[in-house]
């Protein structure tokens, strides 16, 4: 895997688009976190403050992980661009011609998914530590709600894995980005509503992206919302379902990569 990632690094390190998009995301995520944790951005009106400034680690981990989730759909565009570039330039063929197995090409892309998921999680972790400590929280409290950082990692693997799988099947960047974002922000919401409101099923919680998104619900940031949002699921089940989806992306993508013409 290390050798595969070394080659992927050669491809990425001179790709300005990747760096510009990545830096923009890093800045915007940090700014959003700062605005929410410090209370500059708030919910409520006419003097009513729902959020308020709260630098306790318990609150910081909730907020940082939730904001990272909000950005993750858009962050997945990076995976889509890096994968569909190979099809656009036809370098996926050349990589195989030059000596990679198809499996290695596939694993190299999953390597990027894992590394980016790790980096995003690490970034969330560093932000949490920074905002918590600079806000005056005690280091002894750092473990309060720290589990959210693990949820971020699972969520990133899920979102990025889905983005990779769609890219392997559809191959064209524009089409993949539009379909992915429509699914992430519209289709799954409609499906969820249909399943829960029309059919009275809780299956909507376990849809591909929702299974991870529900690990980091809005109630983590805005506690009052928990009064109107039904939480009829357990985090253990959500984690299990998320991991099942990630495994499904891997299997489906692998079959596609190994069996089809390039």
């Amino acid at each position: 895997m290390f050798n595969l990632l070394q080659i992927e690094w050669l491809k990425v390190k001179k790709y300005n688009t990747f760096w510009v998009i990545s830096v923009l995301f890093l800045i915007l995520i940090a700014l959003t976190n700062y605005f929410i944790i410090s209370g500059i951005m708030n919910a409520g009106a006419k003097g009513v403050s729902v959020l308020g400034a709260d630098y306790s680690f318990s609150s910081v981990w909730n907020k940082v992980s939730y904001i990272t989730k909000v950005f993750s759909g858009l962050l997945s565009v990076i995976i889509i661009i890096l994968t569909t570039n190979e099809f656009q330039f036809r370098t996926h063929r050349q990589n195989i011609i030059d000596g990679w197995k198809r499996e290695q090409f596939f694993h190299a892309k999953w390597g990027i998914v894992i590394v980016l998921s790790f980096i995003v999680t690490l970034y969330a972790l560093l932000q949490g530590v920074f905002f918590g400590l600079t806000g005056g929280s005690s280091f002894a409290d750092i473990c309060n709600n720290f589990i959210n950082v693990l949820y971020v990692f699972i969520l990133e693997l899920n979102y990025f894995g889905l983005a990779l799988t769609l890219s392997l099947f559809l191959k064209r960047s524009g089409m993949v980005i539009i379909i992915f974002l429509l699914y992430a922000y519209i289709v799954e919401l409609l499906l969820n509503q249909f399943l829960s409101v029309k059919l009275h099923l809780t299956l909507g919680y376990y849809l591909p992206m929702d299974s991870s998104a529900n690990l980091l619900p809005v109630s983590k940031v805005e506690p009052m919302s928990s009064m109107v949002i039904n939480s009829a699921y357990s985090t253990q089940v959500l984690m299990f379902v998320s991991i099942c989806w990630i495994a499904a992306y891997y299997v489906i993508g692998r079959i596609k990569m190994l069996k089809s013409d390039l």
Partner: peptide, 13 residues
């Protein structure tokens, strides 16, 4: 091997 078209990363030298 050169197969059909030259396949390289456009943004790289």
């Amino acid at each position: 091997c050169l197969l059909e078209t030259p396949n390289f990363y456009h943004y790289m030298s």
